[in-house]
Simulated assay, not measured.
Amino acid sequence: MPRISADQSTRRAFARRAVLALAVLAVAGVGLRLTLDGGAESAWATLAGPALRAPAAATALDADLERRFEAAQLDAAAGGVELRITSGWRSAREQQRLVDEAMTRYGSAEAAHRWVLPPERSAHVAGLAIDVGPAAGAQWLEQHGSAYGLCRVYVNEPWHFEPLVAPGTPCPELQPDAGAALG
Rank of each mutant, 00 (worst) to 15 (best):
A123S: 12
A28G: 07
A111H: 04
D177Y: 07
D7A: 11
C171G: 03
G137P: 04
L128H: 14
A58R: 02
A102K: 07
P118R: 01
G107E: 10
E82R: 12
Q95A: 15
L150R: 01
L150G: 02
R93T: 15
D37E: 15
L34T: 15
V81S: 03
D64H: 15
G149Q: 03
T10S: 11
L74F: 07
P134H: 06
A77G: 14
A28N: 12
A111S: 15
D37R: 01
L47V: 13
W44S: 05
S9Q: 10
A166M: 08
V24H: 05
P2Y: 08
T169W: 10
E157H: 15
R68I: 02
R33M: 11
G80R: 08
V165R: 15
L47E: 02
A135W: 10
V153N: 08
T46A: 13
A28Y: 12
A18Q: 08
P176Y: 06
G145Q: 02
A76G: 06
A13M: 05
A126R: 08
I130N: 01
R68T: 00
G183K: 10
G39K: 00
D64S: 12
P167M: 01
R105V: 01
W159M: 13
A18G: 09
A180K: 06
Q95L: 04
E157L: 13
A43S: 15
E120P: 05
R33V: 07
L83Y: 04
A102D: 00
A72M: 06
T10L: 10
G149T: 00
E66D: 15
V81F: 02
A6F: 09
P2Q: 13
T35A: 09
S91M: 07
D177N: 14
R114T: 11
S9D: 13
R105D: 04
L20T: 12
S87D: 03
I85L: 05
L150Y: 03
A15S: 12
A13G: 13
Y154P: 01
E66S: 12
H144M: 06
D62E: 02
C171I: 01
A135P: 03
P158D: 13
R12K: 10
S91Y: 05
D75W: 03
A178P: 00
Q95P: 11
G145W: 01
G38I: 00
A60Q: 14
E41C: 14
R16C: 07
S122Y: 02
L150F: 05
W44G: 02
D100N: 14
E101N: 14
R152H: 04
E66Y: 11
L182D: 13
D37G: 09
L83T: 02
L36I: 10
G49D: 10
P170W: 01
W89H: 09
S146V: 00
I85A: 01
L174C: 08
L117E: 02
S108A: 06
A48Y: 04
C151L: 12
L141Q: 02
W89V: 13
A166Q: 15
E66I: 13
M1S: 10
W115M: 04
A51H: 11
P55I: 00
Q139G: 10
G49P: 01
L74Y: 08
R97K: 14
W140D: 00
F161M: 04
V155D: 09
E157W: 08
F161R: 00
Y106S: 03
A111F: 03
R105K: 11
E101L: 09
Y148N: 03
R33W: 07
Q73I: 04
L65P: 00
V99E: 01
A57Q: 09
V153K: 05
V30E: 05
D75C: 04
E142N: 14
T86D: 07
